[in-house]
Amino acid sequence: MEKNKIIICPYEEVTMADIHKCLEMGFTTVEDIKRLTRVGMGPCQGRDCIHIVVDEISKFNHIKKSDIELMHIRPNLANIPLKALMEHKK
């Protein structure tokens, strides 16, 4: 399969080739791959793609999926305009 034609994260334009570059550098966790490729940094925080990244880590490094931690989730899960936040402070 041509890895650079497989889009893992459409928001940050991360391809399977980008994921594999990290795996070849020796990284084994979702958090490492997130920081180096930006996968999971878009609006969905990996909802649609982290299971694919976990699959690849598992296959490449022969690690059980149960031993691969998912990434930490941060606020926000959807977007809030600055003016709405400011209004509330008033």
């Binding site: 940094m41 941060r74 926000n76 977007n79 600055l82």
Partner: peptide, 11 residues
């Protein structure tokens, strides 16, 4: 004029 700009993530 940035009122409509939306916050995506905080850490």
């Amino acid at each position: 004029t940035l009122g409509d700009v939306k916050v995506q993530r905080q850490w």
